[in-house]
């Protein structure tokens, strides 16, 4: 995947820095400058990316990222914990979630809260939700959830909504504000159509339009949902049918960060002021688009698994050196 929407390397003042942290190390690639072959510069009103993943997984740098690491709002993204999964790709999805949570909870610069971008469970059973909740709560952080398709397999999603649906609309969408950032959790795994991809639906889109109306264009916006809102790979259904409609409501904002899961790997794209990121899973990796017969779980040698699982950290960045440098993810 390349980085799209590259501009002329001029300015912005507020942004979000995202780091993907694998489970082997916390390496932050702060050299930024050296990897000329992979760097693209762009005009980016805000959203700055710092991907930090060891062992060959895509990574990006941000000028001033060291500063970003110590300032402002910081939150963590976890995704695709798939509690209940026990196949060859990872027989211990509970164990790897525990490791991820422990890492987040023990971080020196503890995040203010977490978001979970769905597929909390593998099969939506009460036991799986209970286990997930027990492990996730060990971080001691408020966690905001959106469902993945694996979370709504029972009773039209009631097993999910009974736990996480309080104060939400429709199938579980909502918004909240924290430290000047407006967060929007969307649900794109309900009422899916044959041959299609993720789906937001008319009711949710109407709600989103109203939710954003009247907000200052300088408000940093973070949108999170399970399936990528942008089309990563249509052949595998990795996208959202009506995601483009949602993006039209976000266009006027100076800094928009879209955080997704579902594809169990880091992908990123920048279009204008909108940065799209997908997170690693804590359970099992999936193949890069088109590199396998299907998007099913990818079994890797045991020593490699933890370099392909992880979480992301996102920081609000306020600085006067707006230049963001995003490298092209190194595929595979």
């Amino acid at each position: 995947m390349g980085v799209a929407g590259l501009g002329d390397c001029t300015g912005s003042a507020v942004g979000l820095a995202t780091e993907a942290n694998d489970m082997n190390g916390e390496m932050i690639d702060s050299d930024g400058i050296d990897r000329r072959g992979f760097l693209r510069c762009m005009s980016w009103a805000g959203t700055a990316v710092v991907w930090t993943v060891a062992a060959g997984v895509p990574r990006s740098g941000l000028i001033g990222s060291a500063q970003a690491a110590t300032e402002g709002l910081r939150f963590a993204q976890i995704s695709d914990s798939h509690i209940g999964f026990n196949k060859a790709a990872n027989p211990d999805a509970v164990g790897t979630l525990q490791e991820a949570i422990k890492r987040i909870g023990a971080a020196q610069d503890r995040p203010a809260f977490m978001i979970h971008t769905g597929d909390v469970t593998h099969l939506s059973t009460a036991g799986q939700f209970d286990t997930a909740q027990k492990v996730i709560s060990e971080a001691g952080l408020t966690t905001h959830f959106v469902p993945g398709e694996h979370d709504i397999l029972e009773d039209d999603g009631k097993s999910y909504l009974n736990r996480y649906g309080k104060g939400t609309q429709g199938a579980g969408w909502y918004s909240f504000d924290q430290s000047g950032v407006h967060f929007v959790g969307l649900v794109n795994v309900v009422d899916l159509k044959g041959g299609g991809m993720g789906n937001l639906g008319h009711e949710q889109l109407e709600w989103l339009e109203k939710d954003l109306a009247g907000r200052s264009a300088s408000t940093p916006i973070v949108v999170f949902a399970h399936i990528p809102l942008w089309v990563v790979y249509a052949d595998w259904g990795w996208g959202t049918q009506d995601g483009a409609q949602a993006l039209t409501y976000l266009k006027r904002f100076g800094s928009v960060t879209v955080l997704n899961g579902h594809i169990h790997q880091v992908m990123q794209k920048v279009e204008g002021h909108v940065a799209f990121h997908t997170a690693l899973s804590t359970a099992f990796p999936q193949p890069a688009p088109g590199t396998a017969p299907s998007p099913g779980p990818k079994t890797v040698p045991p020593g490699e698994l933890r370099s392909l699982l992880g979480t992301a950290r996102v920081s609000l960045v306020r600085n006067d050196t707006p230049l963001a440098i995003v490298d092209r993810p190194l595929a595979g």
Partner: peptide, 27 residues
Amino acid sequence: VLDTDQSFAFRFDKPGRVNYFCGLHPH
């Protein structure tokens, strides 16, 4: 939901064309 090696059976009694898809992976 059909986990590994599980199956689902349905008897089709009415003539016609029935399109179907996976509720988890609609592609």
